[in-house]
Amino acid sequence: MSEHAAVGKLKGKFSGSVLDVVEFRGETTITVKKEDIVAICTFMKKDLGYNFLADLCGVDYLGQTPRFMVVYNIYNVTTKDRLRIKVPVEESDATVDTVSVVWATANWHERECWDLMGVSFNNHPDLRRILMPADWEGHPLRKDYPLQGPGREPYQGRLK
């Protein structure tokens, strides 16, 4: 399958930042360095027309370094094209710059990501917990957070 058109343009502009490009089931995932995420997202929106952030979430790869990935699912309303950008985030420095300056909708998604995954966002206008109570301790969607709640043995569950 041929490379997604946006990949070439992104590589041309941010050659040092693109870490990896993966094609799976016709979807393109571009992994980029987290330092450049705001510049890249601005470029994607302003120059390539990806004006809609469909979704933003964190993924916990416990046991690997870097431990977290923040995933941005973006969409171009005009060309009706989807693309995914990912940034690796270290556990020791679990922060990413906010993209809520690029797409306002990122505000709540980033709050949710902070709340449930414990990845915080620099310069976020209103970084509070959103789904869990304000005084909650821990981040429930982390893989080392017990399914049955704090203070319980981790759920052994199904054999994977």
Binding site: T29, V71, R82, R158
Partner: peptide, 26 residues
């Protein structure tokens, strides 16, 4: 192993499922 995102047009708007699989049954 892989990741996909599918959005559908619900009565209320786009509902999307992003699934990241590590090759296991969950």
């Amino acid at each position: 192993e892989g990741e996909i995102y599918v959005g559908v047009e619900n009565p209320k708007g786009e509902v999307g499922f992003y699934i990241n699989s590590d090759g296991s049954a969950c």
